[in-house]
Design a protein around this nucleic acid. Structure first.
Lengths: 187, 187
DNA sequence: GTCTATAGTAAGATAGAC
DNA sequence: GTCTATCTTACTATAGAC
């Protein structure tokens, strides 16, 4: 039997995610990751033998599963559209820490050569999110084309509000968008 | 008299900007900057004695001036609002290369410790842009509060569309937003 | 499983020839 | 003004003790 880990997998991933999403793949140095996780470089390599690239892949995988189990599950439930959007709003507020944390859709989409591997995963997650939203909007009575357009627009507003919130260092833009998400989607 | 530069200041700044905005400050290594400019490290240090940090500051300064001379000048002209927005649209399409290039509002807002110096400059540029837009909207008859809200919202949509366009590798979302910018602002 | 110690590599930055 | 060569530092990654 192996020795017990001082840091559980889940909290390890959470610490790594916080760094990666907020500074980007290249800037996420092992020293930053050491500080964030409380583990030394060698220990990180013990957990992730392929180093940074593996860490990035695993946090993306975990986020993907989280997204399926939370956001997408909420969106495809049989509750009324208004209720689903209400739940989604809380979910997103939690995911982005009220506008303080960046989104990997943004951070991991910058062209940093080698890591094009995870750009494909990001792309499919973006589409999954938009399609999930479009489903709710369609359930509220909009036609398919309009539903997709509204969904995509909402994602843009969310991403844009995160950009502006970070740029002006105020969570207010993000909160504003989140508080009007229902109107944006099915209003 | 000094020897003639093989690369003029303007095209040098342009090459540097292309790298910085699209990969971010940390990932903009001197080898990337060498390739982009065609100058060797030592030559770059001759032009920018304080290295990367100075390069970043100067490209931001140049963009700021460009923004004042183009975007802000257009927005504060005495042409009718519709006409100003039409000019702005072409300006933005050019600035972002039709959705292919990232915005420094986004790239330079990530928390990379030391370079907090330029976060203040970015912040003021974001506000200047929003206020410039709000002016046009107010001229079209909207009250101040609504004008500001619409302006901020338009900036979010632009930024968000750039994020999504990069994420799904299609300029379509950006083009869609740009083509509806007039409706978004004063429609 | 985590650590200290240490390679090995790429980064930022200078010195000096042309 | 640009270059090659070099220095120093930081980073990624590994070896081996506990």
């Amino acid at each position: 039997m192996g020795r017990k880990a001082s840091v559980g997998y889940d909290e390890l991933i959470e610490s790594l995610t916080k760094v990666f999403r907020n500074v980007g793949y290249e800037a996420a140095s092992l020293s930053l990751l050491e500080k964030a996780t409380g583990l030394k470089k060698a220990s990180l390599y013990h957990r992730f033998p392929q180093g940074k690239e593996q860490m990035a892949h695993e946090i993306i995988g975990v986020i993907k599963i989280w997204m399926e189990n939370n956001i997408l599950t909420i969106l495809s439930s049989d509750a009324p559209p208004e209720e689903r959007i209400e739940l989604l709003t809380h979910c997103l507020n939690n995911l982005y820490s009220g506008g303080q944390d960046a989104c990997i859709f943004n951070t991991f989409s910058f062209p940093q050569d080698r890591n094009s591997p995870f750009r494909e995963e990001i792309k499919s997650m973006v589409f999954a999110f938009i399609k999930g939203l479009a489903g709710v909007i369609a359930d509220a009575g909009y036609d398919q084309k309009e539903s997709y357009a509204r969904a995509e627009r909402a994602v843009m507003l969310l991403q844009g509000s995160l950009v502006i919130s970070r740029a002006i260092r105020s969570e207010r833009p993000f909160r504003d968008i989140l508080s009007r998400l229902d109107i944006e989607l099915i209003g």
